[in-house]
Nucleic acid binder design. Structure first.
Lengths: 346, 346
DNA sequence: CTGTTAGCGCATTCAA
DNA sequence: TTGAATGCGCTAACAG
């Protein structure tokens, strides 16, 4: 009743050995470059591999060698446009070394995130990359005792762990400066969740720029969202309700900026003529929003590459200090949603 | 020099057995529900598992049982916003059965796609879900001889294969009808790659609606893109160059519609006052574009769920005919980028 | 119902 | 250099 012929059973290393007239261990050595082998045998084995179309069984290899050749990647939301390029960067960097990524998402839920981490451990991944997780530092440190960990958006230090920081605060500062230099003095901000590190840093950068320019920081011009579009729309309406006439708006991420932009459109407020709008992330869609959104570019692909590269180093047992990550600069991308303030200068 | 203490070595099934005072096989049986076990022993084992915080080694299990408990998912572009929800749907549906997805992307390249499929085979995935792949039918059929295959956007029939179709043609027809009913008679179309099945079907639906309404089909009003934003922008400029004054535009996917919308904005052509714009997919961002984009909603999440569910059935050896997939209707979402045609009625 | 015995396919000793 | 032997952790017959 069940499965009929599951097709030709897989070719095994042993068959390759037999065909090449050598022992299984020799084949294994050639496969892994574990030892020098006579050229003639290597050739014979390589031919046998090609003829049989042999592919090593990753699970058997993992069982025997204690490594699964896969590395776990924890995101909050696998379907967030923000993480996509990063995932691609990770995939690109680790796949050249024969590793495959195992993506799981925590859905912004601490318990779920812990559960997904456990799943990765059960699968014996050789390391875990955590993209701005919400697990506490202590838990992460515990994990780092068992396997290499690479984490973004946090600055932890431990033997088996590497953290990659992005200059959120500085970039937010520059974004705000951009607005100030355009002559805006009443600037509103839509921030991310208050317990989110990225959001906190961006808010801090915003505050610093304002303070430095001696501009008042009005709490009522501060709204909070959850990094999704809908919350940006809501937040903007809230801001409008204050009837404090701001002429510029700095939003903590592009998705919320889209929501805010729609709210503005609905009210007939023009961008950038009436209010200048600046986001954060530079999602692929931001170049194509109307008008194209001024924003801060996060080097998301490079971030993924860097994380994958660091993981590979860690797996090889290199100490953290040797792990060299090229600096990942955030960059202000001035497009058409911001412009010089018009009208009376205050 | 290399790895220092990799932490406490993993607890094994054998340790659990010892602790619970039973044999390993009994533990295995309890874990897999393979046979009835005396209640007292079950309890003892469950306690031991909890106390030891035991997690089965997936690789060992896979090696022994011949199943890896993971299923491969092939997409063209893991970073495409279109696939995201689908991936989530797949993850949700298969994870409840203990399976984990292995995502790989073919990057719209036949050779690469074949290579990724090979990687999945090497990892001994228990089945492969192909989201609108570009591999030819014959190759897929060959794969289906070795393992269950679920594929979208194609209608193949084979014992170990299930294909899920979405009504692209019909939906495109309805989208075009929508435009016609609004009084538009000169409608342009930006299609996807000519060798892409989805693109072909959408074009066919477009043509059918036009023919049915006795509207002329002008080839110069047909442009082609690659499903990405930039190509939409280019295509629209091409269309404009014809100086054929169309009043409505049907684009084969939302991403290209974004590009077209920007091109329109650049030329000062208003949406929807001057031209009505309709896309296809209903990406998350389409609700927040300005104006919100009229489009065809693809049930992407449900598609993923259905694909995952079908895969589970196939793995259990159920014949295809028993695989019941709820129908997945495409749906026209009328928003604000389309409106009744103004001016002289032609 | 439950314990014992064999492998699953490969990496890795240990000898030769 | 290379082959033979052993075991990774677990499932699946096979006997009780």
């Amino acid at each position: 009743m069940d499965g009929d012929g599951r097709g030709p059973s897989e070719v095994t290393l042993e068959e390759v050995a037999r065909r090449a007239g050598v022992s299984p261990s020799t084949v294994s050595r050639i496969l892994n470059g574990t030892a020098r082998v006579r050229e003639s045998k290597r050739k014979a084995v390589e031919r046998a591999i090609a003829e049989l179309d042999y592919h090593p069984n990753v699970m058997a290899r993992g069982l025997a060698g204690g490594r699964s050749m896969s590395i776990g990647v924890v995101t909050q939301d696998i379907s967030s446009p923000f993480y996509n390029e990063t995932l691609k960067g990770i995939e690109d960097s680790i796949s050249v070394a024969g590793y495959a990524p195992l993506f799981v998402s925590g859905h912004w839920n601490r318990a779920k995130e812990a559960e997904r981490m456990a799943l990765l451990v059960a699968r014996r991944v050789d390391g875990i990359i955590v993209l701005t997780g919400i697990l506490d530092d202590a838990t992460l440190l515990t994990y780092a005792q068992r396997m290499p960990i690479v984490i973004t958006g946090r600055s932890l230090r431990a033997p088996n762990l590497y953290s990659i920081q992005l200059g959120n605060e500085q970039a937010a500062y520059e974004a705000t400066r951009h607005l100030i230099e355009l002559g805006h003095s009443r600037i509103a901000h839509i921030g991310g969740p208050e317990d989110n590190v990225d959001a906190q840093e961006r808010l801090a950068g915003f505050r610093r720029a304002l303070a430095e320019a001696n501009l008042p920081m009005e709490d009522r011009l501060l709204a909070v969202g959850d990094f999704h579009e809908a919350s940006g729309l809501l937040a903007l309406n809230q801001l409008l309700d204050t009837r404090l006439n701001f002429t510029a708006l700095f939003v903590a991420n592009d998705q919320m900026a889209y929501g805010a932009r729609l709210a503005l459109y609905r009210k007939g407020i023009r961008v950038p003529e009436d209010v200048s709008l600046i986001g954060f992330d530079d999602l692929p869609g931001s170049l194509y929003s109307t008008p194209p959104l001024t924003t801060v570019r996060q080097p998301v692909y490079d971030l993924g590459k860097a994380a994958g590269g660091a993981m590979l180093q860690l797996i090889q047992g290199r100490p953290v200090s040797e792990v060299v990550i090229p600096s990942l600069p955030l960059e202000l991308i001035a497009r058409e949603s911001t412009q010089r303030r018009r009208g009376q200068s205050y």
